[in-house]
């Protein structure tokens, strides 16, 4: 079959630093691929290579069967890009921004105007269409940026951290817009630092670290490796933490760990709501004063901890820096 996005052994270095090292992707049409990883893991480099902004050092990539290097212009007709900077012209109105992009896609005047009106309506920007984009909120800007990337109705869309810096309500609104677009058959490659975002949107997730793929699978497959939800209980009195942990274990909730100044007890709760109910009963019986009680999904940190077996790569250089400082 022909993949919407296909790369083989794709590599890119900046001076001495290897940003991407042998990436292989195969994204079927109409699906969403989530590229997950911390800053500097190669996500943005991947997007820039696939959107013709950078040339690869080696390897190949094809978008809807077109070679990204040799057929760059044809590739550009088939892609949309929304970056982490919300690339809109602040001094133009929302309407002017979209019409300009429509002209530059060579859609023709009438078609550019029709699609602009349509997207403004769909993205809830009609009321602010005649205001300069500099007056927009962060969420509105991102929606305008996304609308610009969809203006030519390209078969493949790249979203580079589309919700970084957005609050929860705007994040959910963006997720909804991305879902609507994928329902129309658009292939999406999405980069994110948030496991939950990839979980919400992606059919398949590739986890990058230092430019290499360290995991590849469906969200469910990845989560099996990481474990399910965690229950976090913060106690008023650190002295009671060990008692609480023991009670949770005795009631069969799971093996609890005590962290952060001895006040926080964390326990995996794979048994869902029943396990949470049991935990509440166990803690109530113990009579400990609870300050905070929360359920959380595994975070990217948890994925990294389980995939690499130790801390996040960002900390690697720190001891050296400190040693230098001491000397």
């Amino acid at each position: 079959m022909e993949y919407a996005i296909e790369t083989h052994d794709l590599s890119k270095s900046y001076e001495r630093h290897k940003a991407l090292d042998g990436l292989g992707l195969a994204v079927p049409p109409g699906t969403v691929l989530g590229l997950l990883g911390p800053n500097g893991s190669g996500k943005t480099t991947t997007v820039r290579l696939l959107t013709t902004l950078l040339r690869p050092d080696s390897g190949s990539c094809r978008i809807v069967g077109l070679d990204v290097v040799k057929q760059a212009k044809e590739v550009r007709r088939n892609i949309g890009l929304a970056g982490q900077y919300a690339a809109v012209d602040e001094r133009l109105t929302g309407l002017e921004n979209l019409r300009l992009i429509g002209t530059l896609y060579h859609l023709g005047r009438r078609e550019a105007h029709r699609r602009t009106d349509d997207l403004l309506e769909r993205f809830g920007l009609t009321d602010v269409a005649d205001r300069q984009a500099k007056t927009y909120s962060g969420g509105m800007r991102r929606r305008l940026d996304l609308a610009a990337s969809l203006l030519a109705d390209p078969p493949v869309v790249f979203l580079d951290e589309p919700t970084t810096g957005l609050d929860l309500i705007n994040r959910i609104a963006m997720w909804e817009l991305v879902r609507e677009q994928t329902a129309r058959g658009t292939t999406v490659l999405l980069t994110t630092q948030y496991l939950e975002e990839a979980d919400q949107l992606a059919d398949r997730i590739v986890v990058l670290k230092n430019g290499r793929t360290i995991a590849d699978g469906t969200p469910d497959e990845l989560k099996v490796g990481v474990g399910g939800q965690r229950l976090e209980v913060t106690l008023a009195d650190p002295a009671r933490a060990q008692d609480a942990a023991r009670a949770l274990r005795e009631w069969g909730v799971g093996t609890a760990t005590v962290g952060e100044g001895g006040r926080r007890v964390t326990v995996p709760v794979d048994g869902g709501i029943d396990a949470v109910a049991t935990a509440v009963t166990a803690l109530k019986g113990e009579g400990a004063h609870i300050v905070d009680f929360s359920l959380r999904k595994p975070s990217l940190d948890d994925v990294f901890l389980s995939l690499t077996g130790h801390g996040t790569p960002a900390r690697d250089s720190q001891p050296d820096a400190e040693a230098e400082h001491a000397a």
Binding site: R48, T52, I79, I101
Partner: peptide
């Protein structure tokens, strides 16, 4: 980046 990703 946006302009360079367009077929213009």
């Amino acid at each position: 980046d946006r302009f360079r990703s367009l077929p213009m």
